[in-house]
Design a protein around this nucleic acid. Structure first.
Lengths: 147, 147
DNA sequence: TGTAGTTAGTAAGATTACCTGACTATATTG
DNA sequence: CAATATAGTCAGGTAATCTTACTAACTACA
């Protein structure tokens, strides 16, 4: 019998995600990227940092429409985080690629994520945090397959 | 050595949360509550189902402004999910309480959460799911304390 | 006990992050 | 080559937030 806080799974996930997001946004703002908002994270989360991605691919991964992703990408392009290049393999398509500035943010996001993991590890204990991470990973993998 | 999918913690949490939310919304829509949107969940998540809650309390728990919570509550009141009663202990304040319709949704949300947990348990195995739930609970508790 | 400060809620207006529908240009395929 | 599908954009709308400003009511203390 697990001791149950009364929080639903949904509430728990929401709490943790918002804690992680807040930490990330503080870090980005402190590093001078205050013009990045939460919604933009979706782009950095799903973009292929080396080869670039297509708009529709990004939209699919993020689970939003092409138009919505276009809106986010327009902004990031204006602010110099990404660039749109013609896709040599398809005349309809454009490759969305991180600029140097965008790559710096990409790296910082991953660093910040590590910090969050570390902070939670400090609270929870290293073993438990490792276990949690592993379970989250496994579940996400299974959900991805199950579609 | 954990096999790492390359997903950040933030990405993992986002994926799981969106899966849970989609399931919940499908359930609600199927039960005839198609007028409820994701943002409204925050109210049902934080409201005191027996005694009712204050607007500012709800806003605090949900991490949004009073005005934003007011916007959500206005809608739920129009649709008959909640009612605003004068708070007998404070003339400035109003008690926000679930109507019968609102209580049905409240219950359904918890049922749906159980279904999600069950589905994940089926994928992951009962023991691992139990463990995951326990770790999430523990971490949320610790984060709550640490503020 | 009256006034200063605090708290609960509302109002008005702006912005952001999405959506749907319609369109153009290019690719793919029978 | 014609029909269909795909990549992206444009136009317009709505939902969910925010900030600033306000009123009413409560609390505390000189």
């Amino acid at each position: 019998m697990t001791v149950d806080s009364g929080n639903t799974l949904g509430t728990l996930l929401a709490m943790l995600q918002s804690a992680a997001l807040e930490h990330l946004q503080r870090n980005l703002a402190a590093a001078g990227y205050a013009d990045l908002r939460v919604a933009h994270m979706a782009v950095f989360r799903h973009i292929d940092a080396e080869r670039g991605s297509r708009l529709s691919g990004l939209a699919d991964s993020a689970g939003i429409t092409k138009q919505s992703m276009g809106y986010l990408v327009d902004y990031l392009e204006e602010q110099g985080y990404i660039e749109r290049l013609p896709d040599p393999t398809d005349g309809r398509s454009k490759l969305i690629r991180l600029t140097a500035k965008g790559k710096a943010v990409y790296t910082m996001m991953r660093l910040s994520d590590g910090e969050t993991a570390q902070a939670w590890s400090d609270l929870l204990g290293e073993n438990k945090m490792k276990k949690l991470r592993q379970l989250l990973d496994e579940l996400a993998e299974l959900l991805g397959k199950a579609e």
